[in-house]
């Protein structure tokens, strides 16, 4: 049994009927099926507006799809009872792209990271503090950083705090929604390395949502490519992506710029933005 199973998920936004005229529904996802095994990382690629983040929210259990089911450890996310839901919640965590908007600006790092622990574990204040300190060390920060506020951290450091919060409950799976896209190249490499280490250490599964094929390649085992709400390509071995004949995939692959600027040419004269 796979850890996560998405079966025939279709999702439309704005399908409500307003006074007298029917709103034209915008289809964000159509008939998506994929699965993620334990300890595996699926890289979900696609350009902006392809529906990657919507799929991420559907998988996280916060956006009920119009059609289809999401099974986590064989249980349907959207029909399970309150108790099962509370239990499931701790096994599936998230890291968002914008590290600054993902944390409450009025809370210290300690408060931010201890929030999930407070919700699930019965810890004394000193145990909580020790746990937070430990988590900060795991993600490459210092235990002294726990008294700082989000404004005092850089984007990369704050993303580490978000990761610390996500792994605090030792989840089975983390949805990484463009976790490195707003960081500079050096920080990106650091965070990707950290994610790889955590995956190996805790046996985590990832759904790695990104538009950056290089970032996806460095962390993922399998890759899926989305375009206009559909999965257009799915490979179990990430190296197969380079031999794909799918035009959307070819475009994504060709958008990897060579190391040296002299060799940077554009595919079929296409303009990349």
């Amino acid at each position: 049994m796979n850890l996560l199973e998405v079966v025939g998920v279709t999702h439309t936004y704005g399908s409500f009927r307003s006074f007298r005229r029917k709103e034209k529904a915008a289809t964000a996802l159509s008939d998506i099926s994929l699965s993620i095994g334990e300890g595996m990382c699926l890289g979900l690629l696609g350009t902006s507006g392809a529906g990657k983040s919507t799929l991420g929210k559907v998988i996280l259990g916060v956006e009920k799809p119009t059609k289809g089911t999401v099974l986590f450890q064989g249980q349907d996310l959207y029909t399970m009872g309150a108790a099962a839901r509370k239990h499931f919640r701790r096994d599936l965590q998230v890291v968002f792209q914008d590290s600054f908007s993902s944390v409450n600006p009025r809370m210290t790092a300690e408060k931010i990271i201890s929030e999930p622990l407070e919700n699930y574990e019965r810890l004394s204040p000193s145990e909580l503090k020790r746990n937070v300190a430990q988590l900060l060390e795991v993600v490459g920060l210092h235990a002294d950083d726990m008294t700082k506020y989000p404004m005092q951290f850089s984007g990369g450091q704050l993303q580490r705090i978000n990761i610390a919060r996500a792994i605090a409950l030792k989840p089975k799976m983390i949805v990484l929604d463009e976790p490195v896209s707003s960081l500079d190249m050096v920080t990106q490499t650091h965070i990707l390395t950290l994610l790889n280490e955590l995956k190996a250490e805790y046996g985590l599964s990832y759904l790695f949502i990104t538009h950056d094929i290089r970032a996806a390649y460095s962390v993922s085992d399998a890759l899926a490519v989305m375009d206009k709400g559909r999965v257009v390509e799915m490979v179990q071995d990430k190296d197969e992506i380079f031999s794909s004949q799918q035009p959307v995939v070819k475009k994504l692959v060709s958008s990897i710029l060579p190391e040296h600027p002299r060799n940077r040419t554009l595919l079929n004269g296409d303009v990349f933005v």
Partner: peptide
């Protein structure tokens, strides 16, 4: 609409806690 509210929900915080801890202070 803020991500930190969504993140709090995903980390298992109840509605009451989200309102108390994240909304009222802001």
């Amino acid at each position: 609409e803020q991500n930190f509210i969504l993140a709090a929900r995903i980390s298992g915080s109840s509605t009451g806690k989200i309102i108390r801890r994240h909304m009222i202070p802001n």
